[in-house]
Design a protein around this nucleic acid. Sequence first.
DNA 1: CGCCAGTTTGATTTGTGTCAATAAGCGTGG
DNA 2: CCACGCTTATTGACACAAATCAAACTGGCG
Lengths: 252, 252
Amino acid sequence: MSARMANSSDANIGSACSHEYRVSCDTCRLSQICLPLALNGEDLDRLERIIQRSKPLQKNDLLYREGAPFESIYAVRSGAVKAFRTTGDGREQVTGFYFPGEILGMDGISSGAHASSARALETSAICAIPFDSLERLSAHLPGLQRHLFQLMSREITEDQLLITLLSKNAAEERVATLLLSIARRNARRHLSATQFRLPMSRIDIGNYLGLTVETISRVFSRLQKNGVLAVDNKEIHVLDNAALERAANLGT
Amino acid sequence: MSARMANSSDANIGSACSHEYRVSCDTCRLSQICLPLALNGEDLDRLERIIQRSKPLQKNDLLYREGAPFESIYAVRSGAVKAFRTTGDGREQVTGFYFPGEILGMDGISSGAHASSARALETSAICAIPFDSLERLSAHLPGLQRHLFQLMSREITEDQLLITLLSKNAAEERVATLLLSIARRNARRHLSATQFRLPMSRIDIGNYLGLTVETISRVFSRLQKNGVLAVDNKEIHVLDNAALERAANLGT
DNA sequence: CGCCAGTTTGATTTGTGTCAATAAGCGTGG
DNA sequence: CCACGCTTATTGACACAAATCAAACTGGCG
C-alpha cells in the first residue's frame, strides 16, 4: 500500500531542495561513464553547480511522467530505472532500462513535455540536470555541447538497435541480446558480467522485448535446460557465454 | 545496370563541388519545416554559407553508407530517402522514410561513423550540412543549438513510436499507421492527404514495419476490399479516412 | 517485345499469444 | 513467528496471426 501511494505521487526531484544533497562529479566514480569530459577544474565546477540531487527514489516511484513539463535530464547514480510509454489501451511499452552512469529523459526536449514516463525499479539515487542551465553552459563549453549531441545520438542508435531486434529477431534471440547488454554494462562498472541480479520483473522484460511474460519465462527455462544459464528468479548466472552469444545470433 | 553501378558508388554529396549549387534557405519553401528558426538575415546567411548541395541523387543511389565517416547531416529538398541498417544475415531493417523538409543522418554523431545507410527511393535533391561547421555555428546561435537538440529529440521520440508500433500492433494497424503518417506529412507540405504515390516498394514497407512483403500486400488488398483505400500499385487513394484511423487503432 | 523485379494470391506451417491452473516470493498484519 | 493475501513466475493445452513456400501475374525498362 505504501508502494501504491508512491506510484501516484509526483516524485519530481528537480523541484526538491537541492543544497541538502550537493553532488560532486569530481569524486563520483561514475563520471567516466556519465560525463567523460575533458573539463578543467573551473568548468567542472560550473557544471556541478547546476546539478541537483534529491533523496533517493524508492522502488516504483515515478521519476517523471509522460506529458509532464520537461525541465531536466537525469543521470542514474545507483539503482535502476525503466522508461516507458503507455499505449491507448493501457499496455506498457518499455523503451529502455537505465543503470548507474546512464542518462535518460532526453525525449522531452523536442516538445517541452516528457514523451515517456520513468519509474525506479529499485531504490535509486538520481542526479537531475536542469536542461536550460545545461543548454546555456554548453554554448560556452564546446566539449559539453559535443557530449550532449553524442549522448542524444547514442540514444537514437540504441533505439534503432531495439527496432531491429523487435522487427527481425525471435524470442530467444531478444532475451539473449538483453542479457548480453546488461552483462556488458555491468562489466563497464566493474561488476560481474556472468552473475547478476535483474532489477526488473519478467513483465518489464516482456514489455521491453515485445513478448508476453509467459514467453520470457519459457525462454529462461529453455536456456537453463540447455545449460546456458542458471536462473533463480531474478538471479542470473551465465554458465556458457559463448552459447548465449550464439543464442543472441545477431542482435547486439 | 546503371542503377547497380550507382549503388556501388559512394555518392557522398558532402565532398562534391558546392558552389555550383548554392542554396538559399531564404527562398526555400521548405525552410519552415526544415529549419524553423528565428534567425535574422545575418545569422541565416552564416548558416547558408556552410550548407552544400550537389547534383540530384538518382533512384537507388546511396547518400551515405553504414560505417562511413560521419561528416554531415542531410536535409531532403525533393524526392524521398530511406534510412536502413543491414543485419548480420543480410536482412534490411528500414529505420525511417524521409520526405522533403526532413533531416536525417544524426545517428552518426555519437561514434563518428554512420550507424545506418541511406538510399534515394526516387530522384532526390539533398542539402548536406557539415556537422562540425554546424556545431561551431550553434555555439554562437542559441536558437540554432536548441533547434538541433530538438531535432535529435524528435528523432528519439519517433523511434520510440516505431518501437511501440512494432512491439504492440498487428499488421493492419502498422500499415494503417504508416499511411496516416505519410498523409500527415503530405498535408504539412500542402499536398493531398488522401491521394498520393508511395515512393517506396512493398519490400521497403515490410522492412520498415517488421512484416513480409506478402503480409503488406494482403493488408492492402483487405483495406481495398473493405472500401478504406483504393490501391493501384503505389498509387494510394484514401476513401474512408475515419476507417483508416480506426484500423490504425492506437499507433500514431 | 521480352525480361526481371516487384506484386498478388493461395496453401501450409509455426512461433508466440491466449487461456488456465499451479507454484513461489514477499510484504503485511495478526 | 506464522498465516494470509497479493503479485510475480512457471508450466501446459490450444488458437491464431503472420511467416514460409509456391505459383501466377504485372509493369517498367532496356
